[in-house]
Amino acid sequence: MVDLIAKSACAGLLPITIGSLTLTEETPDPVTSIAPFKGQSEAVSERLESALGLKFPAPNRSASKSGARIVWAGQGRALLMGAAAPDLAGLAALTDQSDANAIVTLKGEGAEDALARLVPVDLRAAHFKRGHTARTFLGHMSASITRTGVDSFEITVFRAMAGTLVHELTEAMESLHARRSHLGQ
């Protein structure tokens, strides 16, 4: 029988550490897009809550519980990560997205400043708190950005753009590191 070998989106590219910042790949599995049909949002949310303890998230929000996470992902859609979706037949469109994205975590002091080089959204802690998520751009790429901790963000882009994602973040990290080392900023 044939044996297919799996390769992650950022294989060979990560992890990297520059100064205080570390960039690592995340590989939650499975990842399912959940988009409730008309009038079914509450029913979907109830099913999710009884199965996983997670409600369908409000726009710009995410939630997590025992390894499973659900992240708002645009108009009437969320991504359930790290747990299989319950039966939502007739209630929502479920689409496998386990392989659709490159997902990375940027962590460390100055993560906000590095992202400020690339993301046109206010990510300061007072305004963008843990669990907040934004659909926006990172450089020229559509991206989903979620604050996962005091100094950590999860960033999702199309899988095929993994190389560009790492390149852009590396540039930002290098520049920030140089500013800190040489200018004391």
Partner: peptide, 11 residues
């Protein structure tokens, strides 16, 4: 109306 105040480059 969904995401809030954004730079025009996103549109």
């Amino acid at each position: 109306p969904v995401c809030g105040d954004r730079d025009h480059r996103e549109f």
